[in-house]
Design a protein around this nucleic acid. Structure first.
Lengths: 352, 352
DNA sequence: GGAAACTACGTTAACGCTAACGTAGATCGC
DNA sequence: GCGATCTACGTTAGCGTTAACGTAGTTTCC
């Protein structure tokens, strides 16, 4: 009877070639209690050095890997940090993530990442799934989240960090840059350089709230001088070289009078746009100005560096990770940190 | 006594503002058994429509989120797919990942990703941590893994996919391209175009096994014509624009006689190198040839597209994901799939 | 040299959930 | 009209681990 039940259970489970070893197997082989194995594996006190060594050797031989699932259920704590980024196609998020790595590794926390495709529904379901794993912390990109997302995270009492966009009113913690201010600063700079007919080239759908904020900043700069931005071109789904290229082609074939400067969603789009301008016979910056955002790597190899706003992605990641770790450990930390953006006057805009 | 034990336990747990609702809370509020709530939440049979609706409403109100930790321990199954990529700085892996997304989402599987930094020790510990969560499947980049990694995955009996590099002898499943063959094909092409003094520009440390395979392929092509590649420059840690730029600068200042063609680790490095050549007054392809790998996005906007080998990253991701899902569901699938690489003759190498 | 303190274990009871099985009451078939 | 089947639940026994506590044997201290 006993036997039958067991074999049934086994057969019902996925075609398990061989069930992986569990703590009980190690205990039996070592002739000790389960608890002693548990202590030995975790390196906590209460086991003699000799027995510990023996148990560890046995565990290795049996290919025993403690189950984090059972472990975190029993201990009610976890070492997971859930990270959500809109896309991996923009190097920015890879750089932020890279900046966080060391801090989390030092704290013994492991990150698990997924992408939301700039979609709030995606993000919501990601948050729910993530919470169901009871992580030690959660990281979201940007500062605009659905009410559902905010309340779920708060209700779960999980430390959370919003990164990239700055807000005074975060779910929990926030580190980022003020995108509106960055756009405004760039706009004022361009006005000062004498530009009067700005255009914008971004991606289809205004899913990227930060980019929209920058555009608004730029617009208000021009508007405060009585100038308006009529040309708002959206091309492609991702902020790629190609999208920038196509956006400019579209613009040049439709816009009259021609804009005198183009503000791009980021440097990659700006480079694509630069290529399109030159292909169309326009000299940059003589005939038209090109402006990007982020200060991406490509800028370092171009003959004519693109005028852009440099963001400090790695520092941002590190700062955010430290704040989150502090919060998780119950230490004091600032709730919000705003990082500066450095305007870099390149050679794709005219000299003053 | 009973009470004391409970409160002690509570106090000992992390400063829980308020413990999140559990299935028991919902059951109590709804006046039904725990099992009925479980069934209602999972949408399985055995609950009347009326009760189900009521329970779901209650769950929402109590902010109840079923614990995946407890759930997968009890049900001994999981919906996790662990994905390991060497770096997020190369768009290639983002594209492969993107290609997999839809397939996994349709199968109700969720991915969790982390990076290994091209480090086998990193990868090993990632595999161990991942296995401890008992995922439904595991995805590794490349085909060179430590014995420990291979045996652990096999011992755990978890379906695994190796992607990007092709091998006849995978841990479990494999989809990728033959990098050696791609290098060989490009080498033969360059010989045919009349190139005789090839050079290579890659990154410091030969951590990227695929890139080394391509280089070997290229070399054997030249060697079979009695030509050798003397110039092997390593610059930077990441395969960035800048690394390509710096690599070429180094090369031009040291190499004599000057190589007539440079093979780069990828298109981004090639573009950086192209910039460095032009900065140095060399005309491409008149004075020197530039060759990349991957067929990255930037190539679509360049006046002179870079000669490269196009890889089909999105297709690769999709193919691999389908194979893995099939394996997880117990369906038949091929063990290995080799995808083609398309040589694209650009304008950074001379015409025949 | 005997109580106190420690060391190195073992035992028990969770952790939050689900599989498997049990069971009233309703429905059905002939 | 009565056994057979079905529906909608409830009960029981884990899943693999750890926290908390219990307990022999050993050491320490004055």
């Amino acid at each position: 009877m006993e036997d039958k039940t067991k074999s049934r259970r086994k057969a019902a489970s996925k075609r398990s070639t061989k069930a992986p070893a569990k703590i009980e197997d190690v205990a039996r082989h070592a002739g000790v209690s389960i608890m002693t194995v548990s202590r030995a594996m975790r390196g906590v006190e209460g086991v003699s050095a000799k027995k510990r060594a023996e148990i560890l050797r046995l565990a290795k031989r049996l290919n025993y890997q403690p189950s984090s699932v059972a472990g975190s259920l029993a201990a009610a704590n976890s070492t997971l940090i859930g990270v959500s980024v809109p896309t991996l196609f923009e190097a920015v998020f890879a750089e932020i993530f890279d900046g966080m790595r060391a801090t989390f590794a030092n704290a013994g926390l492991q990150t698990v990442m997924d992408t939301t495709e700039y979609d709030k529904t995606h993000e919501q379901s990601w948050v729910d799934r993530m919470i169901s794993w009871r992580p030690a912390g959660i990281i979201l990109s940007g500062a605009e989240h659905s009410a559902h997302t905010r309340s779920r995270i708060r209700a779960a009492g999980i430390p959370a960090l919003e990164i990239w966009d700055f807000t005074e009113d975060p779910i929990d913690l926030c580190v980022g840059v003020d995108h509106h201010a960055a756009g405004l600063e760039m706009g004022e700079h361009l006005v000062k350089l004498g530009y009067r007919r700005p255009a914008y080239v971004g991606v289809e759908q205004d899913r990227d709230a930060r980019a929209e904020n920058r555009l608004e900043g730029l617009r208000s700069a021009f508007e405060s001088f009585g100038l308006s931005n009529d040309h708002d071109i959206r091309a492609g789904k991702q902020a790629s070289f190609e999208a920038g290229f196509n956006g400019v082609r579209t613009m040049l074939s439709t816009a009259a009078p021609r804009p005198d400067v183009i503000y791009f969603l980021n440097d990659h789009m700006a480079f694509g746009g630069l290529m399109a301008c030159e292909r169309a016979g326009l000299k940059v910056p003589r005939d038209i100005g090109i402006v990007g955002f982020n200060g991406l790597n490509i800028n370092k190899v171009l003959d004519k560096p693109i005028t852009t706003s440099l963001t400090h992605r790695s520092l941002m990641g590190e700062t955010g990770a430290k704040m989150l770790v502090a919060k998780i450990l119950g230490a004091k930390t600032e709730r919000t940190v705003a990082l500066p953006v450095d305007l870099q006057d390149g050679e794709t805009t005219r000299r003053q």
